[in-house]
Design a protein around this nucleic acid. Structure first.
Lengths: 216, 216
DNA sequence: GAAGAACTGTAATGTACGTTACATTATCTT
DNA sequence: AAGATAATGTAACGTACATTACAGTTCTTC
């Protein structure tokens, strides 16, 4: 049990350092984040940090990988339980926006954009953890709607990607760049509904609720 | 004429420094870019740089402002001369993507995302130079289509934004993050056409060419 | 063409920080 | 509980770089 305690404690320290790194780096950016500030926040020591992660770059990569998995997890299993295709799409849209607009997800995306050139693995990991999985699930669902005759989705994957584009829309850009504050729930809901309306016209989904109740 | 030559020469130096700053900063990022490297590239001297821009931050802001205006200019006057609404939308889509996918525009967008927290003016300038103007013009055009009865566009501005979203789509994200290379012209054209097809369904534009020849 | 201003090159300064080294303390094994 | 192992705190090292100071050079202007 002693050994277990040992590694458990080290694992906790490791996690604390990842959390501190995320907090500091997300706030000021990779280059401006100092390891001293991270250690000050996490507890432990600089020596331990170097032992666990090898370098500043190592810590950064580990932190981003961990954050990608953690933040994007919710996107990989969308909730398809609502009654009616439009309701399902609405639920997916809401879950999507809830994840995207979470402060950590905003910061993560900024990091991926900012440091993707220097750390090419990051965007790859980000896409495979997040968008790729969601697109695949969504495409599958849309294909089901098509097969069942409730909608016309000749290109499910492209259509799934377009769904995401319409839903996050201009709003996401403005929030992530900080030119506008987070939307109030009502505004967000209105935004999503308008996007879903458009999307339903794209796939020619019957506007009323009668279609798609068990579509996929 | 002597004074004119003087300031003309200084203006050229200033421009060279802005260009060099763009080249270096776009390549390695703001923090990693050294003023020495910029001066080495631009010619002139560090002293002149400080005289013209005051500080590294001053140079950076000036460079971004200049680049925003320069890169986004093409977007503010979309070409509406094509025959038929769908052809106009296609032309706008192509111009839009040509601008967005230019290497400098990709780098500019990365900078706005990366440094927007530290330099809040940058995203504001970026949006007002680029997206805001394009959205307004496009909304105006779409409203014209609606008035003429060629399409149904109850919310022109939101619809214009959605147009941009659909056109740049997932493709833009992947190129700007570097997870995929620039598309070949054929692939790009196919992407845009699919997006326009979808958009035409949204606004219920007649698929054939008979409508909208002088719609706006 | 000489006085003066503006521009340039280089060196100096101060600071911040990644990384390493080492002495000290805590933890685990037996 | 003693010895071995690992974690911590601190300090030192080297480097990179923004910013300033200054001496030399070129251009402007009368």
């Amino acid at each position: 049990m002693a050994e277990g305690e040992q590694s458990a404690k080290m694992a906790a320290r490791r996690q604390a350092m990842l959390d501190a790194a995320a907090a500091v780096i997300f706030e000021v950016g990779y280059e401006r984040a100092s390891l001293a500030a991270i250690v000050r926040r996490s507890g432990g020591s600089l020596s331990t940090l170097y032992q666990l992660f090898g370098s500043k770059e190592g810590l950064f990569e580990a932190m981003i990988v961990e954050r990608c998995a953690c933040i994007m997890e919710e996107l990989s299993s969308p909730d398809l339980s609502a009654r009616g295709a439009r309701a399902v799409l609405l639920a997916i849209g809401h879950a999507f926006m809830r994840v995207l607009l979470a402060p950590d997800a905003l910061a993560l995306w900024r990091m991926v954009m900012a440091e993707g050139i220097k750390f090419p693995r990051l965007p790859q990991i980000f896409f495979s953890c997040g968008p790729d999985r969601l697109h695949a699930k969504l495409a599958e669902y849309l294909h089901g709607l098509d097969q069942a005759g409730y909608a016309r989705v000749p290109e499910p994957l492209f259509t799934a990607k377009s769904f995401c584009m319409l839903v996050h829309g201009d709003l996401y850009y403005r929030v992530v760049t900080g030119v506008r504050p987070q939307p109030e729930p009502a505004e967000l809901a209105a935004h999503i509904e308008r996007a879903i309306d458009m999307f339903c016209r794209i796939i020619q989904l019957a506007p009323a609720g009668e279609a798609g109740d068990s579509g996929a």
